[in-house]
Design a protein around this nucleic acid. Structure first.
Lengths: 173, 173
DNA sequence: TAATTTGTTCAAAACAAATTAAACGATAAA
DNA sequence: TTTATCGTTTAATTTGTTTTGAACAAATTA
């Protein structure tokens, strides 16, 4: 019995470590992990108690997790507390976040890229211009590659789909 | 002529924007971009002047870029200043950084994962234990998938190799 | 109705990361 | 030998993000 609690604690700590390394707040990672290893739904106060965090932080982070589809609210009895459980599809959550992150960043940059294109068109034909135009061409190709990749990241992951990545990677090597 | 300078400035600014969105310091991105669009080698003082940054920051960031293989020192005349030029293989740099970043993070976490495994072995056979063991099993599978993926990320990228990713992605969809 | 419980919001504190400015050692030039 | 230049290092500052704690509104209970 004590071992289970220790295991849970360890998993939560690891999640905090990992998430803070992947530009997620550590508390978001810990909360998700807590739900992930809980067979019963978890309330906000449970999180505050188990993770020794403030109520405000629990509230903020759980809503972020909800927005990413990483957790969902569930009804428990006639309790008026909000209970949550983890969406166990970790790969799906990660893929969605990656896809949307890429799209957002690309959207931020693309107007600048277009403006740049205009400027370069008026650049003349000097050696210098040619050099820059060539390098800029490569940048554009990379961007459109990323764009394409972002488009085709699957909505939902399955073990099979993910496994393909590994096989492909070997081919490429 | 003026257009070329404007184009360079724009590229540098975009690089700063992008890099700060991908957990790189904005100045590292700007410096790389400056070298990338310069047909001649660039000295530390050039960077300070062009980008209006401190000498210390230029020094720190250029050495980080050098460590990633994103830039290299070159000899110019008999000048005792250090000059740098960009490694134009952007995809290769990115892939290497992704691969090494994954490996480092995995190395940080794996001792914890092993310790956790030990704890779970002593967990008995309750329903709760089974639930956690199952979820933990999935975590391990994901980790080993990431490990595998990190292993096979190619050392050097070519346009051909990268294009494959796009084709595969379509298959998966 | 008054007291309690629940979740959200917001300003302030705590924290982390990047940048600057100044001091420094090494080397070259005068 | 003195002076100037170059790059690194360090402490202090700036900047951005996360977390806390208190105030609050809404709903529930006594």
């Amino acid at each position: 019995m004590e071992n289970i609690k220790e295991a849970k604690r360890k998993i939560v700590n690891i999640a905090g470590l990992v998430s803070s390394r992947f530009s997620l707040s550590p508390i978001a990672g810990q909360i998700y992990a807590l739900l992930y290893v809980s067979s019963e739904p978890v309330s906000l106060n449970d999180m505050v108690r188990e993770l020794k965090i403030s109520k405000g932080s629990a509230s903020t982070n759980i809503r972020a997790l909800e927005a990413w589809g990483a957790v969902r609210k569930v009804w428990v009895n006639s309790d008026r507390k909000d209970y949550y459980e983890a969406n166990p599809d970790i790969e799906g959550i990660a893929l969605r976040r990656i896809r949307e992150g890429l799209k957002k960043r690309l959207a931020e940059v693309s107007p600048h890229i277009e403006a740049l294109e205009e400027v370069l068109k008026k650049g003349g034909k000097s050696k210098e211009t040619k050099f820059i135009a060539e390098r800029f061409g490569k940048i554009k190709r990379i961007f459109s590659l990323i764009e394409e990749a972002a488009e085709v990241i699957p909505e939902k992951a399955t073990a099979g789909k993910l496994a393909i990545f590994g096989k492909i990677a070997k081919l490429i090597k």
